[in-house]
Amino acid sequence: MSTDRVLAITERIIRQILRDKRSIGLLIIGPLIVMSLVGFSLYEQRDILDRVAPGLLAVFVMFFTFILTGVGFLRERAQGTLERLQTTLVGSFDIMLGYMIGFLIFAIVQTAVILTFTIFALRIEYVGTLWEIGAILFLVVTVAVSLGIFISSFANNEFQVVQFIPIVLAPQIFLSGVIIPVEQMPQLFEWLSVVLPLTYAVEALREIMLRGADLTTLWINLAALAVFSIALLAAAVATLRR
């Protein structure tokens, strides 16, 4: 691994995104519009909003991070710059790590916007600590970044990345307990929910935000999210082989 090369990739990604003013605007405004629509439509039903808010937080963070990374990395593949990178000394792991850090920075900003809006504008009631909520969302971001890079290897254009949303994200939204609690779903779906990263994030956020659980009691969820993140990172690195 070369620290300089990883840093160079991270710096380059940050520069590229910062110079695209419209994308920066959409990165911030997009999640706010969606959160407003969902949040204010349930504003009069506080109990429902408070109950679904942890799940929605996880869903939106994963959704927007997946889009940001999937499309961003696809551009690298489509423009031929990834292939050109592969004729230099940089290794697949360095490329992945550089990307991960670069996209993480923007995804964290986006997550902070979503979290701030949920808590202060939608006035969600929560009992856990903010940093614990942030820690879970950070893991969701790492899973979504790896997932976005991995999926981008199966798409040839932006349109195809968008086509992957219902395939990759819809099962997670419906089966991870955001809408219906996992234990109330048919047995088959309950089993399926075990292999979906969002299940562990939604459960952990609910425990923290609704019941004030601390992270030490949620180590299984943390470990599961970390395993998903590492496994998807390894899968993404494998797609970068020459």
Partner: peptide
């Protein structure tokens, strides 16, 4: 295969680091 948003110098410098 260039980064369109980056300048000429930034592109060349980036690949120099990759080398």
């Amino acid at each position: 295969a260039l980064y369109l948003e980056l300048s000429v110098r930034e592109n060349v410098d980036f690949f120099a680091r990759m080398y």
